[in-house]
């Protein structure tokens, strides 16, 4: 059997080995356990509250059972997608922070680079292998949730719901990919794994906790008293704050997944009375929701590609010695 399989080439060999390394590592097992536990807790809470959520006819989304499963909570713990907005970066960081520098420190990088392989293949293999694992994990969780929901409730699933859940998974993977490529880049820049880990965690903490505070402080310092402003001015200030906040990747992520998982969300910014006039509070079709989050998704992808390009640039012409 084995001899008949086509030659995977050095890239395939490296991805294979990296995946095996990740799967066997303690670090990854702990993170998986963390995410699975969060998932179970979130599911438990949403299942106990699903009845009231579905029965709430004032909510235009109340008929989307599977989306409700992902988003309902009784406020004792945040819903799964909010959990993910801070666990996913941790997953990306932990899979990438020592990608290159640990190999360099243990002397295996020189040995590897002396083999007939392209340098970019190494970076790509590190990136792809971690992404394959993360994708596997999230798809498995989503499918488990869908299957579990089917068994427990017996409710038929709307095709739209499936698309939205898959979209949520794809965006989550893109979000992990961003942190992964950022941490791989820093693992090239810093010689010590600890330094690169701390730097990425620092960036993550900054964006999740401090960034909003900083933006609010800065805007407040020059924002005039709202009582003296016209409505148009208030909206323009509001837009400014929102756009500044969207520099943070976690903001992009939560905007995107909220829109996808709650079909009645029609805009991510403030909406004027004129725009609302005549609108019926009803769920949007999947395509319209995707249109709303498209800028967010492309922003995430762009920053991922940007980080990866920088990583590539730093690594390609670098002298490899132990």
């Amino acid at each position: 059997m084995k001899s008949q399989s086509p030659d995977p080439g050095p890239f395939g060999v490296m991805v294979h080995k990296e995946i095996a390394d990740h799967v066997r590592s303690w670090r990854f097992s702990i993170l998986i356990a963390l995410i699975v536990l969060t998932f179970i807790a979130a599911m438990y809470v949403s299942l106990t509250n699903i009845k009231s959520a579905i029965g709430n006819t004032k909510d235009p989304d109340h008929l989307f059972l599977y989306l409700k499963l992902l988003t309902t909570t009784d406020n004792s713990i945040p819903p799964f997608h909010v959990f993910l907005s801070f666990l996913a970066p941790l997953l990306g960081i932990s899979l990438g922070f020592d990608a290159v520098n640990s190999e360099q420190n243990s002397g295996t990088l020189t040995r590897l680079m002396a083999q007939p392989i392209y340098r970019d293949n190494l970076l790509l293999a590190k990136f792809v292998s971690a992404l394959v694992i993360v994708s596997g994990l999230f798809f498995a969780l989503a499918l488990l949730m869908i299957g579990g929901g089917l068994v427990l409730t017996g409710v038929r699933m709307e095709p739209q719901e499936l698309l939205r859940i898959l979209g949520f998974i794809v965006i989550t993977i893109a979000y992990v990919a961003f942190w992964l490529s950022l941490s791989i880049m820093l693992s090239i820049l810093f010689k010590q794994a600890a330094t690169s880990a701390l730097t990425t965690i620092g960036i993550w903490l900054f964006f999740t906790i401090f960034y909003q505070i900083v933006i609010n402080l800065i805007v407040k310092s020059f924002l005039p008293d709202p009582a003296y402003l016209s409505q148009a001015e208030i909206i323009s200030y509001n837009d400014l704050i929102l756009n500044l906040q969207r520099i943070a990747p976690n903001q992009l992520y939560s905007d995107a997944v909220t829109t996808l998982l709650m079909p009645s969300v029609r805009s991510l910014g403030p909406v004027t009375m004129e725009q609302m006039a005549g609108a019926i509070p009803a769920p949007l079709p999947f395509k319209e929701s995707v249109m709303i989050v498209w800028p967010q998704v492309s922003g995430l992808m762009a920053s991922t590609v940007g980080c990866f390009a920088f990583a590539y640039y730093f690594f390609m012409r670098r002298e490899i010695r132990s």
Binding site: D21, R24, S106, G107, T108, T110, R111, A114, Q115, P116, I117, Y118, R321, S322
Partner: peptide, 20 residues
């Protein structure tokens, strides 16, 4: 370099292996 590395075996001064 790929052509060269196909034919040349190089052992660095502090050779390292994957410990696991």
């Amino acid at each position: 370099p790929i052509q060269v590395k196909k034919k040349v075996g190089y052992m660095p001064d502090s050779v390292g292996f994957y410990d696991n």
